[in-house]
Structure formats: C-alpha cells, structure tokens
Amino acid sequence: ELSQDQQALISYVVDAHNKHRIPQDMARKLLQEQFNAEENFLLLTEMATSHVQVLVEFTKNIPGFQSLDHEDQIALLKGSAVEAMFLRSAQVFSKKLPNGHTEVLEDRIRQSGISEEFITPMFNFYKSIGELQMMQEEHALLTAITILSPDRPYVKDQEAVERLQEPMLEVLRKVCKLQHPHEPQHFARLLGRLTELRTLNHHHAEVLESWRMS
C-alpha cells in the first residue's frame, strides 16, 4: 500500500508533469504546416529549446530539488535534458493520436537530416516504451528519477541527490505493483529503459554533429 506521503508525492509530481508541457501552438505547427528542410530544422530547434524550459519548470516542482546546491541543480538538468526529452517524446508516440498524426511526426523527424543509424534506435526506444503501456504516474515518476540521477557529471553532493531519488524509486516500485499486479517484472523493465536512455543520450552529441554536417 502507498502511504499518505507517497500518494501526495505522486499527485504532486503528476500534476507538475501535466502542467508543464510544450506549448500547444508549437505542437500544432509541427503537425499542420508544410515544411522544407530549413524550416524543419528551425522548428525542431525551437521545440528542443521549449522542451528544456518546460523541463526546468517541471523539475523545480520536484520536492526537494530547489534545496539542492545551485550548481548541482544545473548539472542534473544538463545531464538529463536529452533523456527527459526522449521520455516525453516516447509518451507522445505511445498515445493514440488522431489518424495520420504519428506518420506526420515520424516523417518530420526522418526528414530532419539526422542519419538513419540514429533514427532507428530512437524509434525502437519509442516502441519499447509503448509496449510497457505506462500510466501517467509512471511517466512522471520515471522522468523525475531520470533527472535525479546522482551520477551525472559535475554533481558535487551525490548523497543529497540520492536522498531525493530513493523515495521516488520506492514509490515507482509500489505503483508498478499496484498497476501491473500480473507483471512482477514491470518495475525492472522500467529501470531497464533508463539504461537504454543512457545509450541514446551518449549518442546524442554525434547525432547533433551529423545533423549540422548535413
């Protein structure tokens, strides 16, 4: 069972996750407008910037985050921004979107000039997240857990970060048990996705480089 404190933590994190999203008009542009390669590049850049701003707003609402050392806050956000972005996009791709929308989004990404060797693992990741049929709580908590990774580069007070991450992990473990009682491996699978995310993050610098070149 979840304690009252744990329930409060979940609703707090889920509220923050739902409240801070990429502005709707920007998302609409992505789906509706015709685009050439240059416009596509600019729009995706704008989206990435907006994503980081939204991510920071979400993170500020994670209980305890603002009490961390300021430079550690920046190190955590810098280290996790790409992973949180992939998680958020995966959530979009696992939703049932109106007919054709997923294809438009996928086309846009495929025509952005990013090389195929990076695109394939990205869509594989989206697919593997989709298969887990995660609830909103799981998405929100997993994102918070990703951000609160004590082993990011330049984090000075790793113990302080661990103290924030551990209760989140415990809550997520319980949520998995409650939401997926017939899948005892569900929690382990979610954590496995975090490993996959690290690989995507690792290749991200190369992705950007290949994008710039093209």
């Binding site: 600019l42 704008e46 910037t49 980081v52 920071v56 707003e57 500020k60 300021h70 920046i74």
Partner: peptide, 21 residues
C-alpha cells in the same frame, strides 16, 4: 535567437525564472 543559446544558458535562464510564459 534561442537556437544560438547553449543548453546550459537555457537551463540557467529558466532556473532564474526568465521563462516567457
């Protein structure tokens, strides 16, 4: 333009509350 800002700049600005609503 935002595209010329680095990741860290965007994070620092947003943390300070300079985010445009």
């Amino acid at each position: 333009p935002a595209s010329n800002l680095g990741l860290e700049d965007i994070i620092r600005k947003a943390l300070m509350g300079n985010m445009e609503e």
